[in-house]
Amino acid sequence: MLNIIGYRTIKTALGAALAIFIAEQLQLDFYVSAGITAILCISVTRKDSLLASWQRIVACVIGMALATVLFELLGYNVIVLCALLLLFIPIVVYVNAKKGIVTSTVFILHLYTLEHVTVSILLNEMLLLVIGVGAALLMNTYMPSNEKQMRNIQGEIEQCFQKVWYEYARYLRENSTDWSGEELIIASKKIDEGLAQALRATDNHIFRHDDYFYQYFKMRESLLDIMERMLPLISTLDYTVMQSQKIAEFMEELSHAVHPGNTAISYLKKLEEMTDEFRGMELPHTRREFEVRSALFHLLYEMENYLTIKKKFRPDPKRNKRL
């Protein structure tokens, strides 16, 4: 049932009902406005909810103050109401509390409807605001963890990386051209999805800082950029070149290494040894050999960048290390 309706829908319904119930029990005028405020303050993350609540409180204080002054001085009519809104909205936007415009306008219209302002009326409006905001914040104390979704995305990205390394190695070995490259596209989409989920998780941690998944997906984003840059380089290497076979073997090792329990340090060492070996080989004699050698060293440079970025990533000790 929860999956069908959605936890945010349930929280919104409960928060609105709770706010209206409390306001009604306190015999406040316009008590349903507390429910409207609660609905508007319930957000996707705790951080958004706190920000929205604060902006509504600030906007309502400004709105009530302006309404009291203008209505009492100039009267309760449509022209004054229009002038009030023309003054109120720019001020609220200027103080960066624009999320409170709708809620504040409702409270301003309460005063307009009553056609007088007293301390008890202002207290009534502030209680409606506090009850609505309080109910929303209470509902938003529950935020379901999305770590399972992020781990699933993490696994899908790593499968794509494994496939890309494997296909790169297969091309260098066999000169095969039947790979569509769709894993590069899928990985890019999954990284974007993972970053969105990670930002949501970060915004739900008000009193503790946990950006492991955000840093992980940003790291994968940088690695994917490198892998995409490598594609045209690989296509220039002839599969008959001896160095291509060595690089293919190294890439196949990397494809097997994209899983828990591996680090980049040992692969950097292997890459350095292979680079030194290539540098010690006989210089190219033809233009074609020169072009291949140039692409070869550029490819080695990109792989070094890949492994260096991965080496700098510091996994959470409580979570699996991944290459």
Results as ranks from 00 to 15, higher is better:
residue 2 L to R: 08
residue 5 I to A: 11
residue 17 A to K: 06
residue 22 I to V: 15
residue 28 L to Q: 05
residue 28 L to K: 05
residue 32 V to A: 14
residue 34 A to V: 07
residue 36 I to W: 05
residue 48 D to Q: 14
residue 49 S to V: 04
residue 56 R to P: 00
residue 57 I to C: 08
residue 57 I to Y: 05
residue 58 V to E: 04
residue 70 L to W: 05
residue 79 I to L: 14
residue 80 V to P: 02
residue 83 A to H: 02
residue 83 A to K: 02
residue 84 L to N: 00
residue 88 F to T: 01
residue 89 I to R: 02
residue 92 V to N: 00
residue 93 V to W: 07
residue 94 Y to N: 09
residue 102 V to Q: 06
residue 111 L to G: 01
residue 114 L to D: 06
residue 121 I to R: 04
residue 122 L to E: 08
residue 128 L to G: 02
residue 128 L to A: 07
residue 130 V to Y: 04
residue 133 V to P: 00
residue 136 A to P: 00
residue 145 S to V: 06
residue 145 S to P: 03
residue 150 M to G: 03
residue 152 N to F: 10
residue 153 I to K: 03
residue 158 E to K: 13
residue 158 E to C: 12
residue 165 W to C: 05
residue 173 R to A: 06
residue 175 N to S: 11
residue 177 T to I: 13
residue 178 D to V: 15
residue 179 W to T: 03
residue 185 I to N: 12
residue 186 I to C: 07
residue 192 D to A: 12
residue 195 L to S: 04
residue 197 Q to C: 08
residue 199 L to D: 07
residue 199 L to T: 07
residue 215 Q to I: 03
residue 224 L to E: 00
residue 228 E to Y: 07
residue 228 E to I: 14
residue 230 M to L: 07
residue 231 L to R: 11
residue 231 L to V: 10
residue 231 L to Y: 12
residue 236 T to Y: 07
residue 237 L to F: 04
residue 237 L to G: 00
residue 238 D to N: 14
residue 241 V to K: 08
residue 243 Q to W: 03
residue 245 Q to T: 06
residue 246 K to G: 03
residue 248 A to H: 03
residue 250 F to L: 07
residue 250 F to R: 02
residue 254 L to Q: 01
residue 257 A to E: 04
residue 260 P to N: 09
residue 262 N to K: 13
residue 265 I to A: 11
residue 266 S to R: 08
residue 266 S to L: 09
residue 267 Y to F: 15
residue 268 L to H: 03
residue 270 K to F: 07
residue 273 E to I: 12
residue 277 E to T: 12
residue 278 F to R: 05
residue 279 R to W: 13
residue 282 E to T: 14
residue 287 R to V: 11
residue 287 R to Q: 10
residue 312 K to L: 13
residue 312 K to H: 13
residue 318 K to Y: 10
residue 318 K to P: 02
residue 319 R to E: 14
residue 320 N to F: 13
